[in-house]
Amino acid sequence: MAGSKFIPDRGLTARMVTTMALLGIVYVAFIIALILVGLPWPVVLLIVVGFALFQYFTSDKLTLYAMGAHEVTPEQAPQLHAVVDRLCAMADMPKPRVAVADTDVPNAFATGHSEKNAVVCATTGILRRLEPEELEAVLAHELSHVAHRDVMVMTIAGFLGVVAGFLTQMGLRFAAFGGGGNRNNNGPSPAVIALAVVVVSGVVWALSFLLTRMLSRYRELSADRAAAYLTGRPSALGSALTKITGDMARIPSRDLRQAEPFNAFFFTPAFSKSGFNMGQLIATHPPVEKRLEQLAAISRQLGTGA
């Protein structure tokens, strides 16, 4: 965050370093375990390293594509670019690319593995609903993710879960449809190897899931604080949060289900109105009440009442 005027957050930095260190240990153990259960080490390295490089360098493009978002020029979205320009000048940070997602789900997110390829995206739903000062507060929240580099950390942290999930699915399918092979050289049968991969991958997925969710909740509070202090209007962010959360109930379930996989990157999570969701068990965001309480405290501290 060198050069940025967003307030530093040592707690966030410590949590990011700790999360990456723990995930690094899990990552190495994952590779060793896959080799020990019988997968050839060249195959393991190809899968793990291949996924890592692919997700790291294409995360911004994949996220924009999955959300139906597209980059916009200053001529196409002059008001949106003007807000981003003003905030980047206030924060003394490089301007990221700007995108718009054509969906009525009112939200915003930032993605990209570095400041150079970062993208800040707003949905058409949030652009229609928020007042200018509310939109500015939300975009300040998203820009703080870029400045704090926690978008990059979440991208790296998330890939381990993707690999583990992929291997779990492949192992289950192989055990179900192709696991009747014979033992080779008195070793375990293919079905046993497949089930062992499933167990190892499942444990790794659970660990990476827990670690990234813990980091995700804290980084949202940190981004709220940074945005509130940068704009000097914590109540504008609180107003946007309240408005967006309330309007989620009026969004079609189909749209919410499509957006749910990206909750960890959103300003506020999109939960479908039917069925079980992980937000009830392990949330990507802290409770709205906690976020509003923090913003109210900052407002009192600033003495603005704004």
Rank of each mutant, 00 (worst) to 15 (best):
A21F: 12
A264L: 12
T168N: 03
R217S: 05
Q301Y: 08
V119K: 01
T155E: 05
P94N: 11
M154T: 10
A91V: 13
V49Q: 07
V138Q: 08
V100L: 06
V138K: 08
G179L: 08
V28T: 11
Q55S: 13
R149T: 14
I25H: 00
R15M: 15
F109N: 02
L215A: 11
G112A: 06
R254H: 12
Y65H: 12
T168I: 01
M154Q: 14
A77H: 01
H141F: 13
Q169I: 13
N185K: 12
A91H: 11
G125I: 08
A157K: 01
L36A: 13
F109E: 03
T18G: 13
Q258T: 07
A191P: 00
L127G: 06
L302W: 06
T242W: 01
M90C: 03
A175T: 05
D60N: 12
A108D: 01
Q76P: 04
D102I: 05
D85R: 14
T103L: 02
A236T: 08
A270I: 02
D255T: 01
A226K: 04
S189G: 13
A14I: 09
R173M: 15
V17H: 05
K290A: 15
L135R: 04
S189L: 01
C88D: 11
W205T: 00
I25N: 00
M20Y: 00
I35S: 14
I156G: 02
A101T: 07
A283H: 09
G187P: 10
K5M: 12
P40A: 03
R86W: 00
S4L: 08
V119R: 02
P188D: 09
G161M: 05
V203E: 07
S201G: 10
H70T: 15
R291T: 03
R219T: 12
T268H: 09
P42I: 13
G279Y: 00
E115N: 10
P252E: 10
A101R: 03
G303A: 10
L64T: 02
N277P: 04
T242Y: 01
S274Q: 08
A137W: 02
V163D: 06
V288Y: 04
L143K: 07
R300N: 14
F262E: 01
L167N: 07
A157F: 01
I193W: 06
A259W: 05
A91T: 13
G125S: 09
A2P: 09
F267M: 06
M248L: 14
T124M: 05
A29L: 15
